[in-house]
C-alpha cells in the first residue's frame, strides 16, 4: 500500500549553515491493516520520517509511493486532498481545536470531506461508545482529561476510515492506564476500519502491540523485529534491542517479564 524508497531528508545547509541529515536512505513498505511501530533514540529521525510519510514534509530525495501514485511529485493542494482521503493523524499533544467540543473535533475530517452531518454524528457516537468516551463527550478540550482527549484524537484519526493512521508517540502524555485504554481503542478501530497504523513510540510495551517494529538510528533503519508468537516474547525481544541500542536499565520485573 505505502512504499518508501531511498528517502533522505537534509535540513539546513543553506547560506553556509550546517546541514543535518535527519532521514538517511530509508526503505519501508506498509500493507493494509498492518500495525507497524517505529522506535529509536531521541533525534534519530522518527518524527521527520513520520512527517514525510504523512506528506507534511517533502523528502530531499527518494520516492514515496501510495497505491501506485508517487506522492512527492504531487502539488501542495493534491497532497492535502490525499491526506484528507487516505491518512489519519494522532499527535502526542492531542492537537484538538479548543473552540470545538471533543465530539465536534472528531467530525473534522468528515466536515472537510463535506460528509452528511447525520453520518458524522452517528459514526462518531458509535466509536465513542466503543471507547467508553460517552461521558465527557460534550466537553471542551480544556475541561477534558488527557486520556479523554487522546481517545477523541484517535476517533478523529479513524472516523473517515483512512488507509493509514500515523501516530506520533500517542501514549507519550498519558499514564499507563490511559495508555492501555488508548492502545485497545486503536486496536478496536483498526479492526473496524481495516486501517494500517504506523506508530512512533518510546514505550516498548506500546510497541509490543504492533505486528513489527522498526528500529532507527541516525535516520537509517537499524533492525526490524517481527511479532510472530507470544506478546511477552515479542516484548522481550524488543527490550533486548532497546538495551543493545543503549537504552536505560529496564525494570523487567515491573513489567511482569522476569
Amino acid at each position: 500500500m505505502l512504499e518508501a524508497r531511498f528517502l533522505t531528508k537534509i535540513y539546513g545547509g543553506e547560506g553556509g549553515m550546517p546541514s543535518h541529515r535527519a532521514v538517511n536512505g530509508f526503505h519501508l513498505s506498509i500493507h493494509p491493516g498492518e500495525w507497524v511501530g517505529v522506535m529509536g533514540p531521541s533525534g534519530s529521525g522518527k518524527t521527520s520520517l513520520l512527517r514525510i510519510l504523512g506528506t507534511l514534509d517533502l523528502p530531499t530525495s527518494g520516492e514515496l509511493w501510495f497505491q501506485g501514485r508517487e506522492l512527492t511529485t504531487l502539488s501542495s493542494e493534491e497532497r492535502a486532498q490525499f491526506r484528507r482521503r487516505h491518512l489519519g493523524f494522532i499527535f502526542q499533544d492531542f492537537r484538538l481545536l479548543e473552540a470545538l467540543t471533543l465530539r465536534e473535533n472528531t467530525w473534522l475530517p468528515l466536515v472537510l470531506s463535506r460528509e452528511d452531518p447525520a453520518v458524522m454524528q452517528e459514526r462518531s457516537d458509535t466509536m465513542a461508545a466503543a471507547l467508553g468516551l460517552d461521558k465527557g463527550w460534550h466537553r471542551y478540550p480544556r475541561h477534558a482529561s488527557g486520556g479523554e482527549k487522546q481517545r477523541a484524537a484517535a476517533i478523529r484519526a479513524m472516523i473517515h476510515r483512512p488507509d493509514l493512521v500515523l501516530a506520533d508517540e500517542p501514549t507519550g502524555n498519558l499514564d499507563s492506564k490511559a495508555s492501555r485504554a488508548l492502545l485497545s481503542a486503536l486496536e478496536t478501530l483498526r479492526q473496524q476500519a481495516n486501517s494500517a497504523i504506523l506508530m512512533v513510540t518510546h514505550d516498548p510495551v506500546a510497541a509490543s502491540r504492533c505486528d513489527r517494529v522498526l528500529f532507527i538510528r541516525d535516520g537509517a533503519l537499524m533492525t526490524e523485529v517481527r511479532h510472530g508468537g507470544k506478546r511477552q516474547d515479542f516484548l522481550r525481544r524488543l527490550l533486548t534491542v532497546v538495551s543493545a541500542m543503549g537504552g536505560e536499565h529496564l525494570d523487567l520485573e515491573g513489567m511482569g517479564l522476569s
Binding site: 493542494e77 492535502a80 486532498q81 492537537r95
Partner: peptide
C-alpha cells in the same frame, strides 16, 4: 498557527 498546522495535516486544502 498550531490550529492551521493541524488542519493542514488533516487534509485541509486552499478552498477549505
Amino acid at each position: 498557527k498550531e490550529e492551521w498546522e493541524l488542519l493542514r495535516a488533516l487534509g485541509m486544502g486552499a478552498s477549505n
